[in-house]
Amino acid sequence: MPPSDGGPPDDPRARAARTKRDRTRRALLDAADSAFGSRGWAQTRMEDIAASAGVSAATAYNHFPTKHALLGYVYGPLVRPLAVQAERDIEADRPVVEALIDQVRALARISARYRKLTAALWSAIQEYGTRVEGLPMPDDDADPRVLAPIPDSIRLLAEHGQRTGQLRTFPAASEVAAMVVNLLLIRAINRPEEDPDVTSELLLTVMFGALKPDLLTDPASGERPFRQAR
């Protein structure tokens, strides 16, 4: 298949065109990161992002079909490494409870560090989900749920834990992961000043209350087994 710019791969003009596209895309992502992180979802327009990046709105839409997609591409790199770590933990046969605790605490820290961006993502997901009226489709390149797959790391580990008998098999791993992430995103909006240790304790209590309730009733761990020492 010939390259989209019409020239051979080593054509200087083709390389220049690719470099320009890459720079424009990077400028749009940087501008979007700043805009969503400071103004939130509702107050950020594609036109404003394009202007900050020094391009036209038409150019911005050529790179990203919707505002939802653009935010998904901004947030995705924050959470995709967590799925990689989950796969490594599974391959290394790490105890799934330990791995899940680390994952949830990492998500809480990301949410706290990028609070406004996280709240914007929740708004984008709600709006897009209402529009498509269904679960995410893997080939939908405009769905922020696909582009920023926050539940993936928890789902992978929970599925592994259920297969290996380390966790209860009900509810399904996908349902638990969605429940945990929804609660995380809601708190980014409703509790913007919440300490990530507090958030993670709540999320872990809810998650293991469903998947391994004996952790919450073990006298050795006390009434709050996921509370971090201060």
Rank of each mutant, 00 (worst) to 15 (best):
T118C: 12
P149C: 05
A83D: 09
L100G: 00
Q85M: 12
P196A: 05
P171M: 04
L135G: 11
H160R: 10
R105W: 06
V132Y: 14
P144S: 06
N190G: 13
T130G: 14
N182R: 15
K116I: 02
L82Q: 14
I189R: 15
L71R: 05
T169K: 13
T199Y: 08
I110C: 04
L202G: 11
V96L: 09
D139P: 00
G76W: 02
G72N: 06
P138D: 09
A112F: 03
L156E: 01
R145E: 07
V96I: 07
A112G: 06
V180R: 04
D93V: 08
R109C: 08
P151K: 04
G134L: 10
D141N: 08
L147Y: 01
V74D: 04
G72I: 00
A86M: 01
L78E: 07
A119W: 00
R187W: 13
D143M: 04
R131D: 12
G165S: 09
L100A: 00
A173G: 07
L117H: 09
R191V: 05
R187L: 09
F170G: 13
R131C: 08
L78D: 03
G129S: 12
V97F: 00
L121S: 05
R155A: 13
R155D: 09
A178G: 15
V181I: 15
E159P: 01
T164Q: 11
E201G: 06
G129K: 02
E201C: 06
V146G: 07
M137W: 14
L203C: 03
D102L: 11
L156A: 10
E159F: 03
A177C: 12
Y128K: 03
D197V: 15
D141Y: 05
V84F: 15
I110D: 01
Q162R: 07
G161A: 06
S174I: 12
L82M: 14
P81K: 07
E201V: 08
I186R: 14
A124P: 00
L78A: 09
E193V: 00
R113F: 05
Y75R: 07
Q166M: 08
